[in-house]
Amino acid sequence: AAAAAVAAEKAVAAAAVAARAAAAVEPAAAVEEAAAERAEAAVVEEAAVPRVGEAAGRQGDGRKGSMPWQVEDDDDDEEEEEDGFESVTVNVRGQGNKRITIRTSALEEKETACTMLKQYAQDLGEGFFPYVEQVAQVLVPLISFQYMDDIRVSSAQAMPYLLHASIKAREADMTDDGFIAKLKDYIYAPLFQQLKTEPDTDTLAMLVDVLTEFIQHGDESLPSRMNAEQLTEALNLCHELMKESMERRAGKANENAEDADEDDEDMDPAESEEILVQNIVESLGALIKIFKSSMLTVFQNKFGPELQSMLKPDAVDSDRIAALCIVDDVIEHCSADGGSAPLIPVFLPILKGHALSEAVGVRQAAAYGLG
């Protein structure tokens, strides 16, 4: 028994030594693993950066080259379409039938290049800064590219990352505030213009999401913040987009009422409008967070009627949630300086009433404001 006890004691001691050894090795292994990850990231960055210039160069060449479509007389001969091309025949008054051929492969290559540049800017941070100006000159005009919505979206989605790379470069003393302000101004003008004219609702929603990301950078860098003129234009734009969305949905509701006997399972338009309004609200929330009470008067005058309509008991849940989120943002970001104080008597009964809603999302948004 004594021998067994001694053996057990030795086994416990050996286990303790092994545990201490493992504990000593594990941090070292973790350090080595972290170092390996950093080295791998450095290698990836070193390999990726030279490709940025190549991708931007190809995009620039494509922008200056021939258009990805051609128009020719239709000779009525059946021709098999080549891979990477699509054709359609239309009748042009006074000119007869014309065949329009689109080189879809060129558009797909352009979209892929835009996505690559966006990904490089996102992953490399300030390491991408040497290419920011060149890439901006290539991608900004493509925000209004009319032949493919994916190209418009990919180009626009790269913009916040270009600005972020420049902000990080400024923190590393690689550039100055003037460059950031100039880049911000260079991007905002075409982005605003495309938001005014974008015909596709899904694409419009994604562009508004880009606007929100761009606005949010103004919270981390003063030079990237909207100036007074840009703020006014952004508010006008958000108001117009929200108003147009509500009008489209009202028109769709009337059509559905007239065609009540017909089966209509296509809910995509309504869902697209809901996403668009949600993204507009996110943009407004970002503006409220940055500019706080200084924009409350203009905000109330411009969006008051729409918010009242969205908060009606018979409004759809998504509209009530969106409007309540705006109320929440005003309370959260405009209370420190007392700006929201006059509005509390107005907001309180609204929040209390919606806190009793049967819809979970509505209750949650109202409860957040009450909290």
Rank of each mutant, 00 (worst) to 15 (best):
P50G: 07
D61P: 05
Q59W: 07
V92R: 01
A42E: 15
G57W: 01
S66G: 04
E45A: 15
S87N: 07
D77E: 14
I100W: 07
K110F: 05
E45Q: 14
P68D: 02
V92A: 05
A47K: 15
E109L: 10
E45T: 13
D77N: 10
W69C: 01
V49S: 14
R99V: 01
Q59E: 09
V90H: 01
E108M: 03
V52E: 02
E109P: 04
A47L: 12
A35C: 07
K110Y: 04
V92G: 00
D83R: 12
G60H: 06
V43T: 15
E78F: 15
V92K: 05
A106N: 04
W69I: 01
A41D: 14
E109Y: 07
K110S: 09
A34M: 10
M67T: 06
Q95G: 11
E72F: 04
V88C: 06
E40V: 13
V92F: 03
E54R: 00
E78W: 12
Q59R: 03
E72G: 10
V90N: 00
F85I: 05
G57I: 00
I102C: 11
E54F: 05
R93N: 09
T89N: 12
E86G: 02
A42R: 13
E37L: 13
E81K: 10
E40F: 15
A47I: 07
I100T: 02
E37I: 13
F85L: 10
S105V: 06
G62N: 04
P68G: 02
K110A: 10
A56K: 00
A106R: 12
N97V: 06
E81P: 11
S105M: 04
P50M: 09
E82D: 11
A34D: 14
K98V: 08
E40S: 12
G65T: 00
E109N: 06
D76V: 08
R51Y: 00
V49A: 14
I102P: 03
F85A: 10
E72D: 14
A39L: 15
A41N: 07
A35P: 03
D76G: 13
A47F: 09
K64R: 13
G65D: 06
S87Q: 08
E80P: 12
S66E: 10
D73A: 15
A39F: 15
D83W: 11
E82K: 15
G60D: 04
V90L: 05
E72L: 05
N91Q: 06
T101I: 08
E79L: 13
R99W: 01
A55L: 01
V71Y: 03
E108D: 06
F85S: 08
N97L: 11
E40Q: 15
A39I: 03
G94Y: 08
L107F: 05
M67D: 08
E46S: 14
E81V: 13
G62C: 05
Q70Y: 05
S66P: 03
G65W: 02
V88F: 07
V92M: 04
E86F: 11
V92Q: 03
I100H: 02
T89C: 12
K110E: 10
E86Q: 10
